[in-house]
Every structure is written in C-alpha cells, then in structure tokens.
Nucleic acid binder design. Sequence first.
RNA 1: GUGCAUGUAGCUCAGUGGACAGAGCGUUUGCCUCCGGAGCAAAAAGUCGUGGGUUCAACUCCCAUCAUGCACACCA
Length: 588
Amino acid sequence: MDTIIEKISNVLSQAFTLCGYDAKYAKVTLSNRPDLCEYQCNGAMAAAKVYKKAPLTIADEVVNQLKEDILFEQIESIKPGFINICVSPAYLTEFLNTMSVSKQFGYVPKVTNKTVIVDYGGANVAKPLHIGHLRSAVIGESIKRIQRYAGNTVIGDVHLGDWGLQMGLIIEELRDKNPNLSYFDESFLGEYPSEPPFTISELEQIYPVASKKSKEDETFMERAHKTTLELQGGNKAYAAIWKHIMNISKADLKKNYDELHVAFDLWKGESDSQPYIKDMLQQMIDNGLTYESQGAMVIDIQEESDKKELPPCIVQKSDGAALYATSDLATMVQRESDYHPDAYIYLADKRQELHFTQVFRVAKKAGIVKQNTDMTFLGFGTMNGKDGKPFKTRSGGVMRLEYLIKDIQDAVYDKVINNRDMSNEEALNIAKIVGLAALKYGDLSNQASKDYVFDIDRFISFEGNTGPYILYTIVRIKSILSKYQQEGNPILYNKVQAASSNIEKSLQLALARFLDMIDMAYMEKAPHKICQYIYEVSNIFNQFYHSTKILGEKDKEKKQGYIALICLTKDILLTCIDLLGFECPDKM
RNA sequence: GUGCAUGUAGCUCAGUGGACAGAGCGUUUGCCUCCGGAGCAAAAAGUCGUGGGUUCAACUCCCAUCAUGCACACCA
C-alpha cells in the first residue's frame, strides 16, 4: 500500500496539475512545525519563479481545489506560500486499521526482489573477537534483517580472515614452541594427528606472541611469509595445522556470535576463494588489464573524475602470493557463480574505504561483476571510550567482546535484582535480553559511519534514548494487554477509533509514519533511523498512557479502540526491534 | 603534501533547501487514592567551527579557512 505521505502527495499532484503546474512541486513532507500542521508542501514557493506568480497565489489555487477533499481535516495556504495540511481523523483511522491487518503493515518497497550479499568483513581465525568486531556484527545483522524485510534474498557471509600472513605467523610460532611436532618433520610421511596440537586458549596466546616477534625479528617475519606462501601453495603439513586452527577457531567464533544473536548463512573465508585466483588472474592478464610495477602485478583504477591520484590495485605480490584485494576479488568470482547477486554490501571499518574503492573498480573493469551491480561499502566508525579515544580495557589492552557483553549484562542484572522482585534465574535471563538490547541499541542509534562513545552507564539506563527504555515501553503495553485479556476480552486488531485527543492523534500519526520510515531506513541502509523512530513512538505512547485511562474507559467501543491502538503500537515496536536484532522480555 | 570524514546546548547525539534548529543526560521545579513512577510535565541552556557565495529561502548546496581524526600499493 502507499504510505500516508504518498497518498497525500498523489492528491496534491492532481491539484497542482489541474491548476496548470508541474506535479513535481507537489512533494509533501512531514511538518517541521507540528504546532501548525501535520504535513506540509513547500512546492508553491519553488514554482513561483518558474510560473512568475506570487507563491501564495499558487498555494491558494491548489488549496481551493482540495478544500472539500475527505482526506483533509484542514488544508490551508500560509504566509509566503506554505501549504499546511492536517489529515482527517476518520481517514487516519482507516489507514491504521488497514495497516493493522496487512502483512508487514502493508509495506511494499519500491526496489526489491534482489539477491544481496552481505559481507561482514572478516573476523580473523585464531584471534578472539574483540570490540572491533562488534560493529560489523551488530550493524550487519540489522542491515541483513532490513534487507530481508524489504523482500530481498540476503546471503550473509562471515567471511573469515583465514588465509593471510597471520597463518604463517602462527605456524612459525608453533614450530618455535614445539619443533618436535610431526608437522615440522620433513621426512614424516604418515597421517598427521587428527587431534589438534593446541586448545582454543593456547591458540589465542600464540598469535599475539607471533605478531610481536615478527615486528622485532626480521628472519622470523621472513619465515612467516615463506610459510604463508607454502601453505597457499598446498603444503600438506601446513594444511593439516591450518585445518586444526580452523576447526577450533570456528567453533569458538560461532559460540560468540550466537551470544550476540548474530547469524551467518555462510561461513566462508578467504581460503575458499583460492581455487578461483589462478583463472581470474590469467583472465586479467589476457584482457590486458594488468602490468608489472616494482615486481608486483597491478591494475590501474584511476578515473577521470578523481580529484586525486589513486594508487593502482595490487593483485599479486612480488613474491607471487595473493593478498587482501586478490582474495576479495576471487571471492566475488565465486559468489557470482554460486548466487548471481544483484548487490553487495560490505561492512568494514571506514578506514578501509580506499581498499574497497579499488576492489570495486577492478571488479567492474575486469567484468567480474555486472556493470549495474550495486556495490556498497558500509564503513563504520570506531567505538571510543569516554575519553574520546578508542575503547581500551583498564590495563590499556583491546577488550574481548565476550567480556564486554558480560560487563553490560552484569550491570543490567544488578539493576534488575535491586528494582524488581524476582528469582535469580529470571533476573539473569532478563539481564541477558536487556543487556544485549542496551548494547545493540547503543551502537545502532548512532550513524554507522561516525565514531561513537561507548558509555555503559548511559546504555543501560532506563531513561532517555536507550534500548532498555524502548523495552520498558513495550513491556508496559504487554502488561496492559494481558490484563485486558485476563478480564476475558479478545483483542481485535482493526478497531482503531478516530482520535479523541491531540495526544491520541499524535500516536496515530506516528504509527502511520512507519511505512515512510522503514522505506527510508531500507534505502539508506540506516538502522539508526529505526532507533530514532521507535524512540519517538515510545515517547508519544508514554505521554498518551499518562493522559488516558485505557482499561478504565467506560465506553466499550472507545476502549476497544484504545486496545487496538496500543496493540498496533506494540506490534510496530516489536517489528522494529527485531529489525535491529534484539528481543523484548515479558517483564523486566 | 594530497584526499576523505567530522565539527550543532556543559556532555552524548538527531536534523529531508523551508516557518521559531530538536532529543536525552546533567541542572532547577512539579506530579504516586495511577492500567508498571525503571514513568510524565515544566524551566534554564545555541554566534549550528569561522568567513564568503548560490537561492525567494542555507545547519543543509558551493568555495575558502581553522581544528580534530583517518587514509595514501606488496598487512588484513
């Protein structure tokens, strides 16, 4: 169905056309002066110059066409040339009742039915998830859900960093630590052990040690490079170690992502793209795209419109090894053959923007993806501490994601147990749900591309623009509805009544806006728009709640109307938090 | 050096070329015989970094400038 703004725009377009003006001037927006009207159209002022008429005259003519339209309670022209609009309560009610019985509230996106790949940009195997991985997971999960809600087929790929230099580093460190392992015995010809030579916690310690060593010890670094190359070349011993690393690491990563309620359709990694590299490079060479520069094989990506010189994209290192860009491109080859996607969305730290610019351009230049494939890089900012610098633990290290989650859940638990009378087990369960909501909402309510300040006390607060406040509002509605049902009344969905107070109409207008909002969040890939919206809806609902006796209402039809209204409020809020990737408890 | 991003209330953040720039936190002050007070209402608080320009109209678009952050090929 059309959104309410589209419906009003359509009516205005007809009026503009009828008066002899281009329909493009009939654009309607939400009013920025709610004290004057609900919706507004500023087109008369824009049209004034073209038609050489006073803006107010144009506005008057248009308004005169629409005075009697049943859509409007009031439509008037004001001062310089604004057209101010209030919709009729009866129409609004009908709109909401249609929404309440329609699938997805009647949301029909303009652009849809595409296959979209969401790439979460590589947690590294053998390294614990840290807070740097939080944003990619949280934002990506929400983007994925929004895309699906809009009818797209979405394939989310965790896309592990499982093939780069860090593997060589780990293997070499393992050799130094334990040279007697059969993997390092070149004369060994038997089967390598099926049991891994390390546990997850040992594995997690190996990488930082190796990384540090590589910076101080040049020969160690050289060995790591060589080993990486040999692993990529198919060395059996290294492949056996690699497999152990993968198995252990994946299981641990999965556990952590489950905790975050983040799920992937694919657990592919850079290694999966390896078989595609050789042919891809050959084709690039055959097409004359590549040339040699300082021993490496590169492709130019400069375009005339560029303001600055962009470095060419390296597709093969001077030592013959593949690198980041190579495997990203080869991964596209694989995805094209497996899924024929129409769009790609990559999530990564915004500092990687240049890399993705290069890769995207090469992908189109080399014909790996179709020319009209929609390539999006969703770069996100850093999570900072209260001091405005990248978030660190007290000791100055990088914080592990699982500790961060635990901290926030513990903090919520303390609040719940102090404020509510409930069992320990129940409080723990609620703390889990509410804690995750606090964390995700705290992140998603900011524009993804900006840095933001992580403040645990603010995020878990039940006041203000926070996850817990939203959940509190929903729980409150749930509580009223269950009380209503306990009195033996069924909830009827499409019984919203014409508003009998300003605040009730405000709530109705806010709910009607859902369709416009969700399309905007989808088109702009902007979860924070959903946060902003549900915060507004929650505020308005709470005002309504405080000024209106719902269950105490004597008039049965009116009461039914209130119930239908708050039920729709609840359903919309629940839909929104689901799109953000968290849930709501029954009480808290 | 070049390019990109950011700069809005004390703090954290919204803001679609339109009317008087909005929230929350914090501060001050009201409201519990109330369906969840973990709430609601009210007040104070702004040269929208600075200076130009385009426009009937600029926080929004353009140019310059200052500040901060980031990136600038063989890491990912």
